[in-house]
Structures are given as C-alpha cells and as structure tokens.
C-alpha cells in the first residue's frame, strides 16, 4: 500500500500519522502543499494540526493550496482520502465533505481521551472493527462541533455515512459523552461513496501500546485489504 501525507505550513500531526502508517508497512511519502502533482497512492491523508495557524477559519486557507485541487480530483475519482482533525476541517472547506465544524460548545480547546462507538463497519476504513465496538481515541481541537442541516443529517444517518459517534466507556451515546456539542454525537462522516472520511479523533495517537491503547491501528489495517 502506498500513502501520501499532505503537509501544509502549520500541520503538526504529519509526523505522527506517518509513523503509524509506516508501522503497518505503508510506503508513505510526505507531499508539500506547494507541489502540483500527487504521487501515485492508495491513500491520501490530510493530517491534523493548525494549517495556516487556523487563521480566518480552520482549514479555509489550506483548502486553497496547490495540491488540494489534486486531492479533490483524486477524491472525486474514488481515491481513499482520510482527513483527521484539521484534515477533516480542510475536507469540509474544499467541499469534499458537507456540513460545518463549529467552535466547541464549551468554547475551549479540548484535548483528552474520549470514547467512540463504531456505528458502521461496512466500509473500507472500519472493516477490521466489530460493529458497536467502543474505541478509546484522543481528541485535540477547538472547532470540532459538527453541524449540518436536517436533510443532510438524515442522508448521513440513512445511508450509513456516520461510522463513529462519541459515547462513554460503556458505549452509551448521550449528551454527557459528547465532548464538543456535535449534532447526534457525530465524530466522523463519509461522503456518499464512502471513499472520503473526515474524523475529529486521532487514530494515529492510539497506535502505540506504550503510550496508551492501540485502538487506532485497525483503522489503518482495514485499508490494507
């Protein structure tokens, strides 16, 4: 498997995701945002961080960079695209995913371990997880409060386009287990073809037993087959 991690000025989880991918034998290249061509790859990752300092709106400026038009083309043609945290924000700003990521409901940056429940594993990213499995992942963001209109929300729910939702340790999905106010506790969404995934939690941060759990690894393993 070949992967490309796009590096924007201000990206800061690019190294972390590269390490997780390389651990699973992905042949990974780091692609600088000023490049105009994408290397041939099976997976394109938009990493977390503060591209362009989160200035104007998180992800807005990265969405205008050279390489992004290539990413958009590839995504529309069916390439696997994963946006984590700031990467999710960029996917929304460039129109590959619908909705908006608003300021956290608590109005503060949140960085902590949280739980998500696998709602749907019938897709390329979550097939190595059990359905309803509870995962411990880490979040770190200021704008992760997912919002969308009623029609789109129904579309997401009806078509299995919400792979993970925030929950508590026992897997209960309620307002107490919602860290940022996301509508319906949404932690990540797909596009209609399920080849483009945006998620706020960081799976790469849960890829090393010594640090915490390895709950993030099956996501990358799912992509291998």
């Amino acid at each position: 498997m070949k992967s490309s991690v796009i590096v924007f000025p201000g990206s800061n989880c690019d190294r972390d995701i590269a390490i997780a991918l390389e651990k699973l034998q992905f042949k990974n290249s780091m692609v600088w945002h000023k490049e105009t061509e994408l290397p041939k790859s099976d997976l394109i990752v938009l990493p977390g961080g503060f591209s362009y300092g989160d200035y104007l709106r998180s992800g807005a400026i990265a969405a205008k960079s050279n390489i992004l038009s290539e990413v958009v083309d590839a995504g529309k043609k069916g390439a696997l695209v994963l946006g984590i945290c700031n990467g999710f924000q960029i996917l929304i700003e460039c129109g590959l995913l619908k909705g908006a990521l608003l300021r956290n409901s608590g109005l503060k940056f949140i960085s902590k371990d949280i739980f998500v429940k696998v709602i749907s594993n019938k897709n390329k990213f979550f097939n190595k997880y059990q359905s309803e499995e509870v995962l411990k992942l880490n979040i770190a963001h200021n704008e992760g409060n997912y919002f969308t209109n009623k029609e789109h929300l129904k579309e997401l729910e009806d078509n299995d386009l919400i792979p993970i939702k925030y929950c508590n340790e026992k897997g209960e999905i309620d307002s107490n287990s919602n860290p940022n106010g996301s509508i319906n506790n949404i932690a990540g969404i797909f596009n209609n073809n399920k080849n483009i995934l945006g998620m706020m939690p960081h799976p790469e941060r849960m890829s090393d037993k010594l640090l915490s759990s390895e709950d993030g690894l099956p996501l990358f393993l799912s992509l291998i087959n």
Binding site: N12, C13, R15, D16, I19, G48, K108, F109, I110, S111, K112, N138, A140, H202, E204, R205, S207, D208, L211
Partner: peptide, 9 residues
C-alpha cells in the same frame, strides 16, 4: 485538558 499533551506521540 486545554493543552494538547499528546501531539508528537
């Protein structure tokens, strides 16, 4: 919890 304590893994 307002500080990212994990980045850089």
């Amino acid at each position: 919890d307002q500080y990212d304590q994990i980045v850089m893994c």
